[in-house]
Nucleic acid binder design. Structure first.
Lengths: 204, 204
DNA sequence: CAAAAAATCATGGAAAAAGGGGAGTGAGAG
DNA sequence: CTCTCACTCCCCTTTTTCCATGATTTTTTG
């Protein structure tokens, strides 16, 4: 029985590319595509594919969120994340939300097929390149608490400890403590480098 | 006579997608593809296409630079930039370096054909979406001097005025002046917002 | 429940940045 | 030759951040 594959990607060229890569494969049945999260979800009400290839960046909703939603509603569907860059944050969140694999858009036909076949069996596929990035950046993975994220965001907005304290109804001293913890977690020597690092790591 | 099209993109899926989109067009002759700048340049030594579809992000060299190089060596070739996002900085630099058009990867087959046809005639193609972004962000365009860029970079590294002064062999007071000018140009109220804005505008 | 983690607050001093001035030099454009 | 612009430099005051240190209270979680 052929594996039913569906694809969600807002880039028409990528959809065409994958369709073309998969069209002669007997083991694959192309069930359709969507260019946004909403039409993906409405498609799933009528028909259930085995595997969804899902871009992480979409106009209406991030692939990260869509992945979670689909997995909650239809746990039997396996999801393979699809993206241009291999960024720790994206890959990790995608996998946390139930994806079974992650393929870069510069993958070859062979890699794509391998991913689909493995994932269809219920296994997990991560290309060497991706898993390397995941391992490497996992070491430098930074976990922020709810409050720290809030404070970080407000610092990035240009607010002082006093202003942030007023906004969050806490003492400026407390904000200062959070600030110090942020500096420590990011190993930043001052606000400037903190914000740069946080921005580069997609925290802001 | 069919328009000879060549494509440079490190994403195999995009190459396949475009090939598939163009394959039935009589007006188009597919001459080949490359997944990096180097093999693109070596291809051009043997054969000259009319149009190159060129991704802006590539492993060995940015499309921006490749565009310039190709245009200098082979002025008769028209180049269409290809990218996932429409960011002012990329589009602008691409056009400055001699590109004749800029197409987003979520473009439809029609848009792509329109772009190729127009550009083949020596005209310029920018999709509505792209030209809108170009216009809008042109207003908020910030021009930094050489020194300001240097200082901004070093501030983002976490260096103080004193340290920057030492590094650039100028007085800390001078650094402070540049800093003030940066704050004014970015309309930032402090270092934190300066760095955030600069990061979001791709200055860092 | 007990331990761990997160969030709260404070004091006090040193360092750095912000905000406001003013001012001279050199290079290039008109 | 004047005007503009980038770059250079300085002074002063206030504000904010950085650093060290210590402590209490929630909240989460095994």
């Amino acid at each position: 029985m052929a594996t039913k594959v569906f694809i969600v990607d807002d880039h028409y060229m990528v959809i065409e590319g994958i369709r073309s890569l998969l069209q002669n494969k007997r083991a694959i049945e192309w069930t359709g595509h969507a260019t946004n999260a909403a039409s993906c979800l409405s498609f799933l009400q009528h028909q259930l594919p085995d595997i969804i290839l899902m871009d992480i960046s979409m106009p209406d909703k991030s692939g990260i969120d869509l992945c979670k939603e689909v997995k909650e509603k239809y746990p039997s569907i396996f999801i393979i994340g699809l993206s241009t860059f291999n960024q720790q944050s994206f890959i990790q969140k995608m996998m946390e939300n139930g994806a079974s694999g992650y393929v870069l858009k510069n993958a070859t036909q062979e890699e794509l097929m391998e991913a689909i076949e493995l994932v269809a069996k219920g296994k997990t596929y991560l290309s060497d390149e991706v898993s390397k990035v995941l391992r490497k950046q996992d070491d430098t993975h930074i976990v922020l608490t709810r409050r720290e994220k809030e404070v970080l965001g407000l610092i990035a907005e240009g607010m002082t400890n006093n202003e942030i304290g007023g906004k969050l109804f806490i003492s400026p001293s407390t904000v200062d403590t959070h600030r110090k913890n942020l500096l420590a977690k990011f190993e930043a020597k001052n606000t400037a480098s903190l914000i740069r690092i946080a921005a580069q790591m997609q925290f802001i």
